[in-house]
Design a protein around this nucleic acid. Structure first.
Lengths: 195, 195
DNA sequence: TGCTTTTATTAAAGTAGTTCATTTTTGCCG
DNA sequence: CGGCAAAAATGAACTACTTTAATAAAAGCA
């Protein structure tokens, strides 16, 4: 068993829960090991779980009609991941979620989450804050995509998430930033030359 | 005064509130008229309010460093609008929100919303569901931007929001779809010819 | 440790979408 | 209703990014 301290910090940084609520929350989450390359969510199957990453790294992506691999999201330690639409609305997933490394997650299933939210105002608040944070994060990404070119998006990512960037295959970062792996390679090459 | 029936429906379709909660909610919102071209949120000022559109149409946008006008969101009747990051975190806005037509909104300010959420589990649930819906909506837009080309994004919008598309200036729709007004014009031209 | 597969680099040719400049159409306000 | 400013259309030149293809480097695993 891993230490779940980071998980508790993640929660208590958002809101101060009663001991009872915290205990309920913790016991609703199950620890799970995930091997590298293992899928935890697949298109066509409802995303039953929301996952908190204790250790490792994940990537969610879709395959578009031309067969391109498009990265939706990354998650390393202390991040949350699922297929948002599939989980929230309990509809078939459209995304893959795959482990990039051997990982350990804490996961909760939708029914248990519903019960937690219904049972306690404080836990409802916690999930409200998590949803707001997700929405705000996605909104910033949309603005970034509308206002910046490929090189600027790359620079922004490197600056904001240097530790994430280092652990990712470059093709995954390229597809997250909405460009080809070849073009990202060129951007990096040009950047070295400028120095 | 306009009928606030649509507002009540919007809320009660999400969750069944007690009469007391519903009354509290309604009295926290203020009706406001907004003239065409009037700004309700501006960069540099904290977005104090979250708005529900009773009548009219709004657009939120930013100006990027090249001076391009980039549309973040539209809102017509029965939609919500604000600068999401600015409102949720009460930080200076980066977006403009402007009325495209003479409009009427119901607005709540951040402090009152906080008080509502704190005072009632049911109201907390309501705002949690709104945040989840926003996040899910943004997530779909990100996927759409990653996986579709300009023409596909246009077709998708027309299909999903035909009534919205008709009320918007075309340059605003173009900038929402991440393309130039000229290119949108070409797409529409080509589409007519195909028939 | 070496072999195989995956990932990254490079460069040339191609294209989706932009830019710029002009003309036409629309719709708002007096 | 008529005049004017804003919006839409058009087309030609341009460019940011993609595609294709071939090579090099790195990483996983037997």
């Amino acid at each position: 068993m891993m230490s779940i301290e980071p998980f508790i910090k993640n929660v208590t940084n958002k809101i101060q829960l009663s001991q009872e609520d915290l205990d309920k929350l913790i016991s609703a989450f199950k620890e799970m090991k995930v091997a590298r390359k293992q899928l935890v969510i697949q298109p066509g199957f409802v995303a039953r779980n929301r996952m908190y990453v204790l250790k490792g790294a994940f990537r969610s992506y879709v395959i578009d009609e031309k067969g391109n691999d498009c990265t939706i999201q990354f998650a390393i330690e202390d991040w949350w991941i699922s297929d948002y639409n599939s989980y929230i609305y309990q509809t078939p997933a459209t995304q893959f979620v795959v482990a990039l490394e051997d990982s350990v997650v804490m996961q909760i299933n939708y029914q248990d989450e519903l019960a937690l939210k219904a049972s306690s105002h404080g836990l409802e608040t916690l999930f409200r804050m998590m949803a707001e944070k997700s929405a705000a994060f996605y909104a910033r990404r949309i603005v970034s995509n509308l206002t910046q070119n490929a090189e600027q998006r790359y620079n922004e990512f490197i600056e904001q998430y240097p530790q994430v960037a280092q652990r990712l295959p470059q093709y995954a970062l390229a597809s997250y930033l909405n460009m080809t792996r070849e073009f990202l390679s060129k951007i990096r090459h040009d950047k070295v030359k400028k120095k």
